[in-house]
Amino acid sequence: GSSAIISDDDWYDYVKLIARFLVCSGYKGMLVLIDELVNLYKIPNAITRQYNYEKILTMYNDTLQGKAQYLGMIMGGTPTSIEDRRRGVFSYEALRSRLAQGRFAREDLKDMLAPIIRLQPLTYEELLVLIEKLMQIHAGYFGWTPTLTENDLVDFLKIEFGRVGADTHLTPREVIRDFIELLDILCQNPDANVAELLQSVGGDALAPAAATGDTGAADGDRNFAEFTI
């Protein structure tokens, strides 16, 4: 048989073919996850962006018309990359009219069967549960007994949320990174004091006067204590 080279024009057809092949192999189907949809939004060439959005429209229509059987597509993107009318997905009118939220959905009443599901940031309580689970996984993997109490976990989150700009820029990735680092240190240093570690990065310990012993720092400088280069 002849060999085929998959190109920009026919890759989606081959994805559908792979899904069909997997079903013939005994699977229920194939789920394709496409993250960072914002990369389409960043494409400087308008024609290239429209080509990509046209391909998304094809996927959407295939789903409704039964032409993409056994194939699931989940795409992830920022609100701007979706809703921006100049460069985002909604700049393609055929997609905007199909994907835009209707008139009845509210913040407390969402249609989870809609083509777009708007995700909310993790709450303080949800992050607390997350780091608690991470602590258990870390302890099980490295074989140690964490000494952190629930109050310590709460204090850790208070420090994370106390960052400058945390209300808009704090992500679970940053929280997880800092927490894993804390667990690593405690695991490697069994005698380390949890409260002292937390205190060293929170509160007055960040102020220049406390860090340098300079008691002559002006009060106005304390507003910039966390901006350390």
Score class of each variant (00 low, 15 high):
P146M: 04
P146K: 03
P146N: 03
T147P: 01
T147V: 09
L148I: 13
L148V: 14
T149D: 13
T149A: 11
E150M: 06
N151I: 06
D152K: 08
D152V: 13
D152F: 04
D152H: 14
L153G: 12
L153Y: 08
L153R: 15
L153N: 14
L153F: 10
L153H: 13
V154P: 08
D155F: 03
D155L: 00
D155H: 03
F156D: 04
L157V: 11
L157C: 10
K158R: 10
I159D: 06
I159V: 04
I159Y: 02
I159C: 06
E160R: 04
E160C: 12
E160W: 01
E160G: 01
E160F: 04
F161Y: 15
F161R: 15
F161V: 11
G162V: 00
G162D: 01
R163L: 05
V164E: 13
V164L: 11
V164K: 13
V164F: 08
V164C: 07
G165D: 00
G165R: 03
G165T: 00
G165H: 03
G165N: 02
G165S: 00
A166S: 12
A166R: 04
A166K: 07
A166V: 09
A166N: 08
D167I: 01
D167K: 03
D167W: 00
T168L: 12
T168R: 14
H169G: 06
H169F: 10
L170Q: 13
L170E: 12
T171H: 05
T171D: 05
T171S: 12
P172L: 14
P172E: 11
P172Q: 14
P172W: 14
R173P: 09
R173D: 14
E174G: 15
E174P: 07
E174D: 15
E174R: 09
E174T: 15
V175Y: 06
V175H: 09
I176H: 00
I176Q: 05
I176M: 05
R177P: 01
R177M: 04
R177H: 08
R177A: 07
R177C: 01
D178Q: 08
D178L: 07
F179V: 08
F179W: 05
F179D: 05
F179Y: 15
F179C: 12
I180G: 03
I180S: 10
I180H: 03
E181G: 15
